[in-house]
Design a protein around this nucleic acid. Structure first.
Lengths: 223, 223, 223, 223
DNA sequence: TATGAATGAGCCTTCATTCAT
DNA sequence: CATGAATGAAGGCTCATTCAT
């Protein structure tokens, strides 16, 4: 289980990186269009060629503008990647339409639907997740981005586990945060293996396996 | 649980990559010494600088030979990385001294010791695992290497789960291979997060958390 | 006899090589200037040092620009050589000012002036012809360029021979194309031997010898 | 027409290059075998890969010996090429079995059979002729070799032309040496175009065309 | 805002030749 | 005579970034 339905009290995640040195945002409509075209183009090129092999000229060619314009809106390849990832992170953290609310559903259903929402969001953004894994290894700035996402999920899930423990529904001996880290890792890694590396499994298999193991692992009482 | 004690009937894995285009192995003792020095030096440099930033001249300087000698034994940075990884893979797959045998120990103990062996091997080779993750994203050849390792563990563990199901000791409704993939992913990813990315957790926490979750997830009957 | 005055109906030869993979041509005047300076410099360096010994840095130094600018306009030493040769080929195929027209002159005069024009063009471009011979042996692309030039001359001359045969002025038993190939080879090789390899002969000797042999070989009737 | 039957008074051509710095010839039978294997192998490799692309290790691999042995017999790549070319030059200059003697045959038959012998020898050694053209451009030493061959033919043929002029059988106004150079060039270049560059022509076409043009060019009286 | 020409540090790679065994 | 490991200078090429127009 990973992204649970968000509660009002949750804080927005901090910006991906320090915003100092950023180019000023466009002030004209034309400028906004150009900037937007660059972000869209960058995602296409990054997903197609990978971060390292993507050349700025490919991005500007895809966006239909000059390399000079690129530097009007971004100060580096790094920076446009941040912009691209920010969009995907939003989608990952707030996937939109959870099929059930926490209140009216059994814990197992909540777990299942959370996992499903996470896996589907991962699938949508799989190619970008590859990029993020890649740059997270190279660049501490993106390592922080990746860990922020992991931590957000782990924290959310840790709270869920704690709640269930308090309700006497699951194994009280588990450290909620460690268990959350481990089970979140399980789901995240399965998603990566299947959607990014091409391991064979259906969405249904993924959802059912991760949900059953997750529930079992907590020794969730069914009733 | 990850690497189990190997049985006699297991086959050696095939070589990591096609051996065509490889430089001829040295025929003299002196040549073998130089080649070996290069592999050792390459591991040092890769772990220190990362694969992308490692320069061939750094490797040969570390090995105390000329750049020409490098090309006597390897045809690219790629190729020497393969040689380096092959050594680490051996250590990961056959970590040496399991503390218990399968026969005389309870399933939980077997799981714990297997996880411990895996995590310790991972810790020993953590820096190289970073490299492997990095190049696996870039290069299909190393992607195959990485998947071969994952598959080896998953298969081994799937067999263990099947055996426990046959013995009536664990949840019979789980698909052994899917469950194995998921639980192996859990342990592997925890190891990566802690030993490679710097997440905070002690070896003891790792072993206990993964073992308890693993046993719970299978609904392992304790006696 | 070699290049005749061209007629209106003659087609321009196709470009020297496939234009795929070429760098985009410059769009600004400044860019055109730089590109042009590079071509001029390349000819100087190729003629001075030969193709194999010519270094890209010599060319850019001669052109007064950076090595990066070279790659803005050309993707390899190959490609700039093509540009250099294209200029010379134009001069060879259309040498400019034939001293007589075909109509008002006797066949022998036409042959003489054609040979003279060819030999003088060869002399002007002799150093580049050495380069072309050299690379034609190494690279099929330039082999095609060289053969295109030979074929253009041979075809042109074959037509001249055929016309003279039809007019009953020369040996009717000769195959016009084979004869043309052979006699064109004779002139071309003499030019190469004298202007490129340093065999001793004056321009006058060359013109008179090749013209007399050519006319004799066709058994040209003098009137 | 090119190589005429040799006369007793002709000098052997000088050695291809100064023989100083040559390795001592082998003194044992084994040594002679190794040296011979290297020359044979070198011809194979040069013809297959060209001089520039031929690596010494390819030659020794083909010869089945070590690179060290190479330097026992030759001091450079240059030197073994000289040895290879020497063999071919012998074949070119003394092609073996002319079908007629000069005495009992008409001049036209002599011309035809000389041309045939030359063209056939050229065909046999075509691949090596490519190499020789290549290195003659690069290296003055081989340029001299090439010119020595040309000069030998031209001189021989000039004498033949002079004899025919003295007998009143051919155009007395031709400079025998210039004419010889030109006509020899014609035959040599045709051979190169067809056998080395792949121009299309049969041996019969080549012999007939060059012979007829040669005879015509001299205005040879037939009777 | 938009353009695109200019820059250049720095890495990988080749292979003829030497020489210790 | 035979072996083959060791050498290292030298040059082609990339691409993020700057800045004059």
């Amino acid at each position: 289980m990973s992204p649970r339905g968000r509660t009002k009290t949750e804080q927005e995640p901090p910006p991906l990186a320090d915003t100092s040195g950023l180019r000023a945002p466009p002030v004209t409509a034309r400028g906004a269009r150009t900037r937007s075209a660059l972000v869209t183009a960058a995602r296409v090129v990054f997903e197609r060629d990978g971060y390292l092999d993507a050349r700025l000229t490919d991005i500007t060619a895809e966006a239909g503008c000059s390399i000079g314009s690129f530097y009007t809106y971004f100060s580096s390849k790094d920076e446009i990647l941040q912009a691209v990832i920010e969009v995907a992170q939003d989608d990952m953290l707030h996937p939109g339409h959870p099929r059930v609310g926490e209140d009216e559903a059994s814990p197992e259903v909540v777990i299942r639907e959370s996992n499903r929402a996470y896996l589907e969001a991962y699938k949508r953004n799989a190619k970008l997740m590859i990029i993020l894994e890649q740059v997270a290894i190279i660049d501490p700035k993106f390592r922080a981005v990746r860990r922020a996402r992991s931590a957000a999920f782990a924290k959310r899930n840790a709270r869920g586990i704690k709640d269930l423990q308090d309700a006497g529904l699951v194994d009280p001996e588990l450290d909620p945060y460690m268990a959350s880290m481990a089970l979140s890792s399980m789901v995240g890694r399965m998603a990566y293996n299947v959607f990014c590396l091409g391991d064979k499994a259906t969405m249904k298999q993924l959802v059912e396996t991760t949900t059953r193991l997750w529930a079992n692992a907590l020794l969730l009482k069914v009733d």
